Structure formats: structure tokens, C-alpha cells
Simulated scan of single mutants.
Amino acid sequence: MSDVSAAGFQFYDGIAPETDFDRLADGSGYRPLPDDWLVGVADIVDSTGHIAAGRYKTVNTVGAAVISAQINAAKDMAFPFVFGGDGAGFAFPRAHRAVAEDALARVIRWADEEFGFAMRGAVVPVGDIRSAALDVQVARYRPSAGVDYAMFAGGGLAWADKEMKAGRYRIEPAPAGAFPDLEGLSCRWTPMRARNGKILSILIVPRPGAAPGHVAGVAHRVLEITKHLDRGGHPVPAEGPGVGWPPEGLALEAHATHGSSSLFRRKAYLLAATFMAYVLFKTRWRAGTFDPSHYIRMTRDNADFRKFDDGLKMTIDCDTDTRQRIEAELQRGQAAGIVSYGLFEQDEAIMTCIVPSVSRDDHVHFIDGAAGGYTSAATAIRQAAAAASQA
């Protein structure tokens, strides 16, 4: 990475991470992206159809691959990104544009050739977003000592997503066979069954023109409702996620990381590697400096089960009474013209992971519902809007 490119990333390095998630609802700690930064967005075309066909874990893996490719392309530079279930958003300085666009183009090609998924991708200058009277503001939330996640506000990321779906700012696929570097992308943990009733995916977005303070009030009240749940509804059990062998996501990981070698050889390697890991996690035996008990605790604590992404997203382990109270609050907010919302229930949550190194604590873990999650919650919002327009 060039010195100029490295210097450009210092903006994000300068944002102090927030440890109180509630404070992020009212805009505390957010800073506007520099004018010369850009926003990248990507999603899977017809992800709802793939979900209906039972391919949601594949959808999640491809969505997370957008971030994995950008992390590897940025080397040791920290940058803001957010996982959306069937896609992702991220931001980067102008000096890094060619590298970021190449990584995104490679993911688009890989998704097609490995899984038959059509992906959209776009890169949008922040200046264009501000010309549309919106903004991109970012904060950093630290759920544990090992990792922090970017939070987005200002409406700009959502605007970039709409522009992408309209065919603007398009990134074309890389040439055939030009696959991304997805080293570290994995899907080895078993699905996490609800312990309180259902896994509830929640998506809350501001209505156009809604006062930020009113939107923050709705978010605060929803978060308050979840506080009586174990760890705020965290879907990962306190003892950590479960393991099985062979892991359900082994084939997906092989598709992500086989590179120029054969898929068969990569699967064989992963079968052996995951068996060794399975033994260590089951016995909790240490292997050199690797402590499986510590790694499992960090996996639990690092998981991103709630985030701000131009609105509040959560995937929580929720009982019926809590779900009803949340929905009643959201119905009031929607009736008042403050927010739109989507809810989706399922029996399990899943986790897709990016692990640069098992010897460090900065591995990231994206949580979503196992049967539709955020994508289905977003579909519920679109369906409600369509119904309202026809009424």
C-alpha cells in the first residue's frame, strides 16, 4: 500500500470507539466522512429467491465475502464496513479507489462463477451523496476488547444502495477467473437455536423527513425493551457457539478459499484442519499459544448482533412477550411517520466469520437469522410500502 493511501485511512483511525451501544442511537460519536472518500455497496440480485430455495447460508457467505475481500485488499489499514445479510457497505479514501474497486469486481465475478449468483456493486463519491442533501457519518462501536465495528448514519449509505439498484455507479465484474483474496472467510460454527422462543431479526429505518431526535427516541425505546433479555438478546449462548464435524459451512469455505487449486484438494485440506479444530474445541486442549476457551469467548463477545446502518438492525433471541412489546413500539413509530420497520422470526441464528489469524482477538463475526434474517425483514418493509401505496 502506498504512503498516500495509508495516510488516507488515518481519518478512521482517529475515531475513538464507543463502548455504550445506546449512545450511538442519538448520534454521539459520529463523524462525517472526508469529502474525498468514497462509499462502496454490493448486494445479491434476487436474494429472496435464493433464500426461498434454502440457500441463505450461501447468501450470507457471499455478502460477507465483500468485506473479506476489502479487508485483505486494505492490508493492515482499518476502514468502516457493515454487513447487511445479502450484501455489504464500506468506505475508503480516494487513493485506495483502484484497489477497492478491483477487490469488489473480483467478488462479483466469483459469486457468479462459484455459486451462480448475480451481484450488483457500485462505488459512489461522498461528494455526490452530499449533493443529494444526505451525508455519510461513521462511528466505531467496541463490543469487546478485541474488535470494533463501524456504525453508519446520515442516509448516505442507503442512498448509494438505491443508486446501485437503479444501475448507476456500477462496478463491472472482473475478467473470468479473476477471483478475490478471501483468506480468513469461514463458516464453521453450528447454527444457534433460540433459547427464549425465536430468533427475531429487526430492521428499523427512518422515514423521509423524520426528525433525528424522534428516530433516536424510537431506537432508544426498542433497546430499552430488550435489556431484560440475557445480554440484551445476544443470540450466541454465554458458553459460546457450538461446533460439529464436518462443519456445515465447509463446502462454502472451500469455494471461498480454493483460489487456483482444485476445489477437491481444498475440501480435503479443510476436512483435516477442521477435524483438528473440532478436537481442540471439544476438549478445550491448548495447542501452543492457541487457547480454544479464550477463542470461543472472544467469538461470542465479538459478534455483531446489533448495529446502526442508516437505521437500527438487530438479530436477537427473543420471547413472545418481548417481541409483542417491540412491535407495538414500532407500530406507534410508524403511525407517527417516524420509522418504517420489518420483523422476521426464525428458529436459529447463523454466524459468518472473518478470521485473519487465530492467534489474535480481532476476528469478526456477522450474525443473521438462519432462515431469512435481515433480507426478509427488508422485504417486509418493501411489501408494507407497496401495500400502503395501493391503499
Rank of each mutant, 00 (worst) to 15 (best):
R109A: 03
T283M: 11
V124L: 13
F275T: 09
H214D: 02
P180W: 01
A273R: 09
A176R: 06
A336Q: 13
G63W: 13
L229M: 11
I350Y: 08
G337D: 10
Y12D: 11
V136W: 12
E329C: 00
A91T: 12
D148I: 00
I296M: 13
A139Y: 15
V279A: 07
A105L: 01
T48W: 06
I204E: 05
V41L: 09
A100G: 04
A378D: 03
T283A: 04
A219L: 14
N72L: 00
P356V: 13
C187G: 14
E248Q: 09
Y30A: 01
A64D: 10
K227Q: 05
D22N: 02
R306K: 01
I350A: 14
A387K: 09
I326V: 11
E172I: 12
A132Y: 04
T257G: 15
I15Q: 12
R284K: 11
A384R: 06
V279G: 06
A251K: 12
S260Q: 07
I204A: 07
G63I: 08
I171K: 11
G29W: 06
A377N: 10
Q70T: 10
D128H: 11
G49I: 09
T226G: 03
S28C: 02
A69N: 07
T289M: 14
F21S: 00
A387R: 08
R297L: 12
A150P: 00
R188Y: 07
P241Y: 02
V107P: 15
R23H: 09
I51S: 05
R360T: 10
F290L: 10
G167N: 15
L134P: 06
D112T: 14
G217W: 02
S201N: 12
R286A: 12
E224R: 01
A111L: 04
A194P: 00
D86N: 09
S389K: 11
A98K: 10
D86G: 15
D112G: 09
R140Q: 09
K282I: 08
K313V: 03
F152V: 12
L38H: 06
R106A: 04
L270Q: 06
G369I: 14
M314L: 07
A194Q: 04
P80S: 13
I15S: 13
M77A: 12
L182T: 09
R140C: 11
S47A: 03
D22S: 10
A65H: 14
V66I: 04
S68Y: 14
V66D: 05
Y278R: 09
Y295C: 06
P212N: 01
F9H: 15
T61R: 06
P208Y: 06
F264A: 10
G154Q: 05
K165R: 14
T274I: 02
I367Y: 02
R193D: 07
P173L: 09
